[in-house]
Design a protein around this nucleic acid. Structure first.
Lengths: 141, 141
DNA sequence: TATGCACCCTGTAGCAGCTACAGGGTCAAG
DNA sequence: CTTGACCCTGTAGCTGCTACAGGGTGCATA
């Protein structure tokens, strides 16, 4: 049922198309050591196999979920230690979740302030503008 | 009641302390033309007046509210045109508000995904880890 | 066979918005 | 007269790409 024969090599463009990653980004990931350098063809073209496809897909998905490149690197490492407990994985994910929650809270505070500012603008002149006023310093000394 | 005599000049360090801005950041703002270059003392030290203090406070407050440097530049320009209608100010603020709302929505979608991922982790080995699994590609072909 | 075109290669510079040096000068206190 | 805190300029680094420039490769078509 499964097909054990190796997939034939993908060009960098193909790999990019299949993972939704720009070619330059793939080369960048290789340069910073996030994904392994693949074999080269006779003409010095990068030749990727299915393991690269899986790897890059993992990276893409992690990036889409907002993990930093360092976190992705750590997750990739952990994903390879299949017989170790997954507490470290959980820790990274939880830490990221907390960051995301912090950011949401910050942005919501921001939204409230901006909302209030915008609501007060009566479309007069700049001199009377509540937005400019809200941004201007009101020295308490 | 008001004190019309000019405040004596502030050093860049003082200005930084009063506005909560790092010295390097102030110099950076000057370099990119966001705030005007001040007069210099005999020893070539920057000497800031109250107008710089007000200006930088405005910048800080705008930055805290998440406006980009380009937006801050535009807001500063507009703040000077006191007799013009403030529609343009309103437009910048509204545009920013929309951006913030988009970001919140994006982050909330993210949080839901991360939440679901983290909730499924049963603290087994990496091989069984639902987080790793969620990140791994599941080829449909 | 030539040639055109899409693709690939390396290397470098740019984006935002700072931050952090290095390597010096200035100034007031003790 | 030295110490230490401050200031100066200039440049390089950070994240995570993106966009060239200036070439080489590979395949189809006239």
């Amino acid at each position: 049922m499964t097909k054990p024969q190796p997939t034939r090599p993908l060009s960098i463009g193909e790999l990019g198309r299949r993972t939704g990653t720009k070619v330059e980004t793939i080369r960048y990931y290789e340069r910073i050591g996030l994904i392994a350098a693949p074999a080269r063809s006779a003409g010095n073209y990068r030749a990727y196999g299915s393991e690269h496809l899986a790897r890059l897909s993992f990276v893409r998905r992690s990036r889409d979920l907002g993990f930093s490149l360092d976190q992705v690197r750590a997750l990739l490492d952990l994903a390879d230690q299949r017989d170790r407990p997954c507490g470290a994985v959980d820790a990274i994910a939880k830490q990221h979740l907390e960051e995301v929650e912090r950011k949401i809270a910050d942005l919501e505070a921001l939204r409230r302030e901006l909302d209030a500012m915008v609501a007060q603008c009566h479309q007069g002149t700049v001199a009377e503008c509540r937005i400019i006023e809200a941004l201007s310093p009101h020295p308490e000394a």
